[in-house]
Each structure stands twice: as C-alpha cells, then as structure tokens.
Computed example of a mutant assay.
Amino acid sequence: MESYQLKILDKSVVTHDTYAFKIEKPKGYTFVPGQATELSLLKEGWENVKRPFSLTSLPKDDFLEFTIKTYEDHEGVTKRLGNVQVGDKVEIGDAWGAISYKGEGVFLAGGAGITPFISILRDLRQKNEIGNNQLIFANKTNDDIILFEELKTILGHKFQNIIENQKDTAYDQGRIDKEYLKENINDFKHQNFYVCGPEGFIKAVNGALKDLGANPEALVFEK
C-alpha cells in the first residue's frame, strides 16, 4: 500500500462541527466515488494514528477533498483536524471500500454517514444521471445536516430529512425504523439500498430493509 504526505490547501466550514478539507492530489491517484482512505495528521504524536475518511471530491478533480465531522468531546484525530491550518500536512494511503454506485436506489445516511454518498451524488449530477435516486438523511438536529443546500439542489423533493432530537424541526421527527421505511419507500424488491452511518444504524436499517423484502444482495454498505 502506497502512502502520500500531502499539504492541506484549504479548510472551510460546512456545519457547526464539520469541515471540508482540500488537500494536494498525488499524481496518478485514483478512486471510485464512495471510496475512503486512511488518513493521519503529521503532527507530533499523531503520525501513526490512522482513521478512515471518505473522499468527497470527484475523481477528475485536481485536488482531494474530505468532509469531516469533528468531535470536540473526544481526544482523537477529528478533534485535532478541527484545529489544523492551511499548509499543515497529512498522510493518506490508497483508496479502498465497498461502497460504490450499483444503480438507482435509496441512500440512507446517519450523520457523518452521508460522506461516502457525497462524491457519488456529485458524480451522478455531473453526468445528469440522478434519475430516481432518493436520499433519506437522519440527524440529531437541523444544524447537523451536512451540505443541506447542495443535496437539495441535486435531489430536489427526493431528499428527505428525519430529525431525532429537535422538537421544532420542520422535517420528519424520529429515527429511520421499519415503520418509517415502509411509509417512505415504494419498492423494496427491485432497487438498491445504500446504507452508511454508525454501526448500530447500519445494523438496524439493514435488518429493517431485509424484513421489508429487500434483496440482501442489493444492500450496499461497508462491511
């Protein structure tokens, strides 16, 4: 596995706790939309602490981008990334991952689980191939919705939000459970389902989808 030491070119705010980082792109670096790589911060004591992050740029861009949610209450890589500056360096490896586009379907994301879908949806939009794809995005509050405006532009009314911890939200309230899936998805047998989020979210959503008749072969997620 190759490794690349690269400079941060740009850091921009996406939400109250999420940033987009543009970094240098090594010559010949390739990935498929939906894939991830391991990243470490080249700061003393953190060089060997590697964490997987999804690439959110497009394969043909002349930079690499990562959209990363930071966790201030946890002394880890994401908290450190929240404090990095343009010009700081990171190390990444080659791209890997099981999440890639297999055809039209429903994208189901929990929180930062939206990140592998960003590159896929941007790529489909560029190709004018959004078609009937649908996104259901679960978050704790309205302020946690990553790239709301862009996702709304890409998907229009096929972009649904469900909020768990905010009573005055204008969106659906609750969690993505079997009942919610039943109410919001028309066809379980003949389309793909792309699932990403915390481990418990993936397990619960995949279980509900199978119970509702989804083909296990049509579930696309990081195993």
Rank of each mutant, 00 (worst) to 15 (best):
Q160Y: 08
I120Y: 01
D61L: 09
Y19F: 15
I120H: 06
N142L: 00
K27T: 09
Y171I: 00
E44V: 01
K60T: 13
Y180Q: 02
T115A: 14
A112N: 05
L108N: 10
L135W: 06
A204F: 12
N133V: 09
E24H: 08
E44K: 15
T153P: 02
H74D: 07
A208G: 04
D62Y: 01
E2Y: 11
N184M: 09
Q85I: 01
N83F: 11
I118T: 08
Y101V: 06
Y29L: 00
N206S: 15
L151V: 07
F66S: 11
A98M: 13
K22E: 15
N165S: 11
K7Q: 14
L121T: 05
R51G: 05
I154A: 04
N139C: 14
S40T: 11
G97H: 03
W46E: 08
T56L: 00
R51I: 04
H157V: 12
K203F: 13
R125I: 00
Q134Y: 13
D211R: 03
R175K: 13
L219E: 11
I176A: 05
I176M: 12
I163M: 09
T30M: 09
E199N: 05
G110C: 08
L147Q: 06
K178L: 12
W46F: 13
L135R: 02
N133L: 09
P198E: 04
N161E: 09
G76Y: 00
F137V: 00
K60M: 07
K152T: 13
E183A: 15
K178H: 05
K79E: 15
T56H: 04
A20M: 15
D168K: 06
R80G: 02
P216Q: 10
M1D: 12
K127F: 03
A138Y: 08
Y101N: 06
G113V: 05
N206A: 13
I163C: 07
Y4A: 07
T153I: 05
Y180V: 01
T78W: 01
Q35P: 08
A204D: 15
G76P: 10
F31C: 03
E150H: 11
G174T: 00
E75G: 00
I185R: 05
D62N: 15
M1A: 15
L124Y: 04
G213P: 07
I120S: 08
L219T: 02
E164A: 13
S100K: 08
K60G: 06
Y101T: 02
Q173Y: 03
A95F: 02
V86H: 04
F21I: 10
E179M: 10
F31Y: 04
D88W: 06
N128E: 14
E47T: 09
I114P: 07
G82W: 05
E179G: 09
T15Q: 08
I162K: 04
G200H: 08
K27M: 01
P26Y: 06
L6S: 03
E2W: 05
K158A: 14
K167D: 11
T169S: 15
S40Y: 01
T153M: 10
A98F: 15
T30K: 13
K102E: 13
I92G: 05
I146G: 10
Y101D: 08
I202P: 00
D172I: 00
N206R: 14
P116K: 02
R125G: 03
E129T: 02
